[in-house]
Design a protein around this nucleic acid. Sequence first.
DNA 1: AACCCGGGGGT
DNA 2: ACCCCAGGGTT
Length: 364
Amino acid sequence: MAGPAARLLRWFRAAARPFPWREPFPRDPYRTLVAEVMLQQTQAARVAPFYQRFLAAFPTLEALAAAPQEEVVRHFSGLGYYRRARLLHATCRTLLRRGGWPPPGELQSLEGLGSYTAAALAAFCFGGSEPPLDGNLLRIAARLLAHEAPLRAASLRRDAAALGRALYLEAGTPEVFEALMDLGAQVCRPVSPRCPDCPLKGSCRAFQLGEPQRFPTVPATRPVTSLLWVAVWIRSRSGAVLLQRRPPGELLAGLWLPPLRPVLPPAADPCAVARELARSLGFAGSLQALPAVRHSITYRRLTVVPFALGAEAPRVAEKREDQRWECPDTPGVPTSSLLSKLAAAAGQGASGGPPATTTPGDPP
DNA sequence: AACCCGGGGGT
DNA sequence: ACCCCAGGGTT
């Protein structure tokens, strides 16, 4: 073995990033499943701490399957794409019910496992040889072959799969798949690739053309839309904050956040909307505008203006299934990082600089 | 095939 | 400000 795969593996063994899911092959399928689901559309360095905490809470497939779904989602809080957690929970229950793992070729029938995750599990745990097609391999293939197409094009997927198979055939270990991912993350990066350091530059058409950046082509980006919301931040004497479960079908569905309401039209007065929201919850009293918080959800840019309820608020809200009091620092329910941003804004408003008494401006 | 979903890191 | 991330499900 002296071809590209050998150079790639040599580079990888010297430069590999240490990640907690990188155990010897074949790997434990449960832990690998957790890692691969978390890694979907999420940068590996960000996954690592979530992965460790998650496995400490759910060390085995049986432990995860026995837990309520909300507990599983709670351990995803801040990671995004929360449907992943619900589907992971469903898959673990499916596995327990059917008494074990299906044949590697049928992994994709499990909830939340698409072609990438099924191939990764098969390769890392069950001796599979089909390459997991992730964004890294697709980009590397586009450049090696000077394949001018968007990342998701079917033609590029075919070529990338063929490239992955050829490299696996030469290497004989699923380590090449991880090597490709690290190469894509560290060398063959989307912007400013480090071609001089690349172990595959000798076989790279894009490098020979001198324009690695041109591949793959970038699809038209969806325009970003701005939204303005208000939140009411209602604190109890013990420091708990009123949270509501986001309704299904809306953004951040199923997660627990302070009462939120869109400001429509965007030119409307956020303060009036917040007053009406507080009134609908049974709270009267003065509202204090806090510093606005920004939060991005795919192509939407949210500006959330929190309003703190004054001290004359009633102590209890109406008892509802979708409503509860939680400490914002250690919530016992699934939530989003938007909660900690709002908590930070409330903290600043209370102890930091001068409180905002005027209505904040519209979002950009 | 196109669209939707969280959140943040890197440039 | 912009890109995109170890994608999958739905329409």
